[in-house]
Each structure stands twice: as C-alpha cells, then as structure tokens.
Nucleic acid binder design. Structure first.
Lengths: 221, 221
DNA sequence: CGGGGGCTTGAGGCCACTCAACGATAGTGG
DNA sequence: CCACTATCGTTGAGTGGCCTCAAGCCCCCG
C-alpha cells in the first residue's frame, strides 16, 4: 500500500511507505482497461497492489512503444509535469492504490524525507528509461529478449521461474521488435539451452536454465 | 549562468537561476574531453555556458548510444543517485558552470522553489528520454532524422538555419543508426526539398526549407 | 605534400519485418 | 453439448530497410 506495510522506513527500500497522513484510494481495473491517457492532467500517483500495468506512447499510424511495465509494488504516474506523457493500461486485472498528487506535494513541503522519496522515484524512472535507450538503440533481437528476461526475473522473484503477465505483443512493443521476432528469439534461446518454455497460451511459463548464457548476451559494461 | 543572468525567476523558464548563495565554478573542456565517466560519483551539477556536450553509454563491444545532447543553457548531471549512469564528453570546445550537488541539496532544504526546480530538471530529462524511447523503438531512419532536425532547430534558435556542433557519427549514435544511413537520410530529405545542405566538413550547415514536410514525418499524435 | 578526419555515395548482404497459415484454448450462444 | 469466434502463440516464406564494406572527395594540419 503506499502505506505502512514495512517496518523499514529507510527511504531507499520502500519510498512513500510512510504516508499515512495522505488519503489513499483503492481502485480496480479489468484487463485492458485504461488507467489514464496521454495528455490527461496528472492528478494521482499510483502504486500497484496486484496485477501489472503498461505505459506506452502511440504514433498516429498505430505503432506503439511501451516505456515500462509496472509490477506489484511499483510506483508510477509521477510525471513531474501537469499532464501525462504516456497512456497507462492494466495488463491483467489489476488493483491500484492512488494518492492525490497535490496532497502529496503539500505534505512534501513539510517533510524532507518525502521530498527525497519523490526525487528518488523520479530518478529511478529516469535510470530505467536511460537503460532502455541503449537497448532500443543498439541491441539486436536476441540481446533485447535476453535483457528483458533477466529484468523480469529480477523484478518478479529472481528464482528463474516466471509466469509473465504480458503478451508477446506487449513484449515486442516494449523491445521495439515485432511479436514474431520475440517468439523466434525465445525459441532460439530455448534451443540454445538458456531457458525452457512450458505451459499453454493462458499460462505462459518461462524458466531460466542458464543465467550465465543470458548474461553474456546482456553485455552492458 | 546557474546565476542571475535572468530577470525572470519563474522557475519554469530558468530553473536554478537564483542560486547566488551557492558557489559556482567555471571550467573549460577541449573538444572530445571527458567531463565525467560512467559509474563515477556524481559530485556536481553542470550548466553549459558555451559549446555542447554529449552523454552516452557503451556496450562492451564498443556500440554507443548517445542519450542526449546538451546545448547552451542546458543543465545536466542531475543524476539523483550517487553515481553517473552515462559518460559526458565535450562535443566541441566547451565551457561549463558547475555547482556542488551536496551544497545544492543543503540549499534545497531551506528553499522550496529550489527543490521544485530540481524536480523540474529531473522531469525534463525524463520527458526527453521517454520521447526518445519512441523514436528509437518505433521510427524509421527518415523519421528519426526529421525528428532530430526539428528538435535541434527548436533548441538552437528556431530559425531553420543551423550549424550543428556534432558529427554524423554522433547523430547516428543518438538516433540508433549508422552514420551512412544518417547521411543518406539527409541527402534524401534534401532531394525531397525539405532542407538544404551547405557548407563544408568543418561548417556543417543545414537549412530547413519545408518545416511542414518534416513535421509530417515526425508523426507523434 | 602526405596523412587523417569527416562526409558522401555505391554495392551487396543480413537481420528483422510483413504476410500467411496453423494449433491451442477460452468464451459465447444456439 | 457443440459449433463458432476471438485471442494468443508459433513457425515458414519472402521481402526490404538498414548495415557493412569500400572507395573517393574535401578540408585542415603537421
């Protein structure tokens, strides 16, 4: 919850955890539902309670670029500007906690820790975007998919076994590929022994078998 | 300067302009000189007084992705984290104004406007990065170059006539293309009548002749 | 004057794209 | 219960856009 789930209030591990003073709202979205649209005024900050969210931009001819996936615990919508630059949609059925921006800013005036938290949230988004620039601009398909799998594993549970909430189409639009290329890259990685693909359409399960091999494709220095 | 160049202190137009209280340093860099390296501790915030700066990431095999160009007046290095995520280099001979991060943070504690400025600077970087994601992931070569020219025109003087400080190679690494493709795209745009290329190697001058045509290639909705 | 850096253009190849077909599963309504 | 449809994933065939390699030009500088 934006709230006191945690005993550790050190601002790094759980930013905005100590905001009991602000009113919290909870809201549920069906799979595919829009949470906010590009250019809408940014009224709330959100935290994922259950489910997953994608934020994206569109070109006028329909090409889509997903900027980020937000998983359980993630905070998003912190556009430090008046209006959103992305559209946000529920990837699966999703519950969010939301908090009024304005209220948060008022609180931040009196609370230096909260201010720092807000800056940290912004900085984290920036870091992610910057890493993604390198991926989109300079990595080939196999490298993109390998990087994606390592990112998701780390963010879901780091066990190497994951059931992805998003479709191949979503992954493709996140990585700047076609969905067919995502498929082919996964099969290739599977054939290389780096991972195993099990489950059917509704339960896409991926298990990382050889993390080392994936890391060798994820060659940031 | 980070200083009082401006009479308008409204935080939107000239963030961090009112920091007379903080000590300012001035430093010059030769063309190609490194300003800071990836993973170095982030000690300063910078503002371009004259010249231009590129910030980039490298893959271990040498592929480079330029994240942003910083022109006169731009503020950069505001990694709200301990260390830099990019390397910064002077594109041409450059003079920077710098200010200690730590000092700035101390001042920000007492000054809500300054805090807001810092958030705004971070937000602006984020916005730029997010726009660039769309470009890198979903635009073709001609669209990338058209978008680039419109961005540069707007940031330099909006007159349609500009002398770019960066090389074709820099542009390529910014747009996720090869330098040859950048060349070919420029020639194509020139042949289409959208712009004119004049000057020699040392004075790369580009004049936009048909802004409408460029905009139709820059099809964000 | 020779060398190096930057820009342009051409030739050819490859990677990722499009188009297409097919299998599997879930949901819907007769 | 069973077509019927829609959605998602996988795989193949063929194409095309961008990359690589290469050559040549111009300008500056030692």
């Amino acid at each position: 919850m934006f709230t006191r789930t945690t005993t550790n209030l050190s601002s790094n591990s759980e930013p905005l955890a100590n905001c009991g003073a602000a009113r919290l709202y909870e809201f549920s979205y069906r799979k595919g539902a829009e949470i906010y649209g590009e250019k809408e005024p940014a009224e709330y900050i959100y935290r994922v309670k259950t489910g997953a969210v994608r934020t994206y931009k569109l070109l006028s001819d329909g090409r889509r670029q997903i900027g980020a996936f937000h998983l359980v615990g993630d905070i998003f919508g912190s556009t430090s500007g008046d209006s959103h630059r992305f559209t946000a949609e529920a990837v699966v059925d999703t519950t969010l906690l939301l908090m009024k921006r304005q209220r948060l800013e008022v609180l931040a005036k009196a609370d230096a820790t909260l201010t720092r938290d807000l800056l940290n949230v912004a900085a984290k988004s920036l870091r992610h975007a910057e890493d993604h620039l390198l991926l989109l601009g300079r990595k080939d398909a196999l490298e993109k998919v390998a990087t994606f799998l390592l990112e998701m594993d780390e963010r879901i549970n780091s066990t190497g076994a994951m059931t992805l909430p998003m479709t191949r189409h979503d992954i493709a639009d996140y990585l700047g590929l076609s969905l067919e290329t995502v498929c082919r890259s996964l099969t290739r990685l599977s054939r290389m022994g780096a991972l195993s693909l099990t489950g059917d359409t509704t339960q896409r399960k991926i298990t990382i078998l050889d993390r080392k091999q994936l890391r060798s494709l994820d060659l940031e220095r």
